[in-house]
Write a protein that binds this DNA or RNA. Structure first.
Lengths: 182, 182, 182, 182
DNA sequence: GATGAATGAGAGTTCATTCAT
DNA sequence: GATGAATGAACTCTCATTCAT
């Protein structure tokens, strides 16, 4: 991947971008052909870069998770422990709100993309943020990572609901956060 | 629907039951043919009763919602106002946990099956339960129906997660409920 | 298969006939779509009757082998032991000459259609004919079933050669037969 | 071909060698890309040397035939006329046994690779060997080149059968040879 | 009304071949 | 000349839907 020709790298990125758009709009059942069209390449090019549709979806998800993990890392390093967890939580939900695929894949996707495979990548940074928040007294001691993750997945799904607005998001997350506080 | 021949009515119900099973197990992408097989009828019979696959799915959802609405009514009539809302909330999540389709359809399915079309049916009974709970002082005054519905949808989705167990459900819902209490 | 509707049975047979033709002409790599076209049905109909291309090919081969086995049985029952083996041998080669698929499949086809799977069906009747011929003194004692089968496959393949004519067939098989005689 | 740059000539030969291996293992349906990979060149290089896949296959076959023709020449020049024909026959069958492509192409491949195009190259040396053998009294007078070629093709195909072993080869060819002797 | 065979658009995937780098 | 990314037609197979029986 590091040694791709310039044009290949360009196409790879256009395909990823197109796929993110298409899957965000239509969900993971959108056709690979549409991704190709949106990226302005032939269908074969998509399959050259991602041998199977699942590989393409996995690549998108992986990229997104990597971004989130890195954001979590930054928050853990420099943020206020009392608010970092909730800030991150909000951030993830916002990302999901913009992408049907994300939430879909958290539960539905290919076998190995389920919670065990995908959300698990967030376990470590999320765990750190949770521990810090508890040490800072911002979250009850009896709240465990497991339910935080579940709530995160839940809220990410909810973010796709028809009437979802920033204001509703605030009010909804506030209930969850309040439930976590001592 | 009122004037169906006896055998037709019987078939209709067997198809609905089969569809609920099949879609619960395999999700909404299960094939209509499998529904027919499970119901013990021919594929043509399914399409005679439900002109399109979406109609069948909508019918299942409608039936489920009707059941839930009636349960909500009973709780509102006879239950303890302080706990009825949360009891109902738990009940819905449990129903979702047993059915892939439900949660899937809340966000995914055909356009008109989204929150606006489906969950809206719960608005009235849910609103009643909420109002009663608030009057009884069991729920904060500033919690609105909208976010309760969103949380309900969210938790219903989460119920499909790989690691979901009754215990995790308790812990997760408890956070949400705590966030609702004064 | 016995309870197929009349139209289904008709189509099944038209598909088999078309497939035999098409594969005979173009080899097993001919497209299923061409078979469908030749049979005058839509592609889906072919796949309804034969869930995968291999099933279609296997069905053709099975039918042909069944015919040959039954011919062998008749020859064993009523034919002159001294000539029955060679008559059957000739018969098989003639059948192969008319069908690319046959010879192809004897060596090439799907994994389970190779010699072990396909020609093996001829083992029993061929063995009987061979034993009778040896008892009648028409074939050397040291000729075994294995090499007869090999020669049969060989000659069947050769029957597809460009210059193959009835006359060449006679002269070629005569050499083989002479080699088998005491 | 005479004026190729040294590296081009080297590539050409590596491609031929790789192709012989790949097609021998996987048959003519193996992908050109695999040939390129095995040869350690890019796919474009293969197509520069052989404008179409068939050209590559034809080149392999031609090379093999050339080798066989030269072996036949040597046998004709220096071998015992009584056994040279059968020795050559055996040699060809052994070559075929090691290469799926050979036998496949004798009947299957592109139209112009059939008997008329390929085996014809063996006509002359084979004719010479046959004539010598007949003059030496080792082969019946009424055996003609045509059927020898047919038997050769036949045995070459048979060499690909699943159960083919050196011992089976001996027994099978012995029958053919016996049929040729006076 | 019920049956279930037929339909055919569409999906994912492969691969010979072309052509910009 | 070599490279290898891009192309796109072709192929197998699926499934919602229609319609003759």
């Amino acid at each position: 991947m590091a040694q791709l020709r310039a044009d290949a790298r360009r196409n790879r990125e256009r395909i990823l971008a197109a796929a993110e758009e298409v899957f965000a709009e239509r969900g993971a059942s959108a056709s690979t052909e549409e991704v190709a069209a949106r990226a302005g390449v032939a269908i074969g090019t998509v399959f050259r870069h991602f041998p199977a549709k699942d590989d393409l979806i996995a690549a998108i998800l992986k990229a997104l998770l990597a971004r989130l993990v890195s954001e979590a890392g930054e928050l853990a390093a420099s943020g206020d422990p009392e608010t970092a967890l909730f800030a991150f939580f909000t951030r993830v939900v916002e990302a999901a709100a913009a992408r049907r695929t994300v939430a879909e894949l958290l539960t539905g996707g290919g076998a190995d993309l389920r919670l065990g495979g995908a959300l698990r990548a967030l376990d470590e940074p999320l765990g750190t943020l949770l521990r810090r928040a508890q040490e800072a007294g911002a979250v009850r001691e009896d709240v465990r990572l497991e339910e935080v993750t579940a709530l995160l997945a839940a809220a990410s799904q909810a973010a796709l609901l028809a009437g979802w607005t920033p204001e509703l998001q605030d009010r909804t997350l506030e209930i969850i956060f309040r439930g976590c506080r001592p």
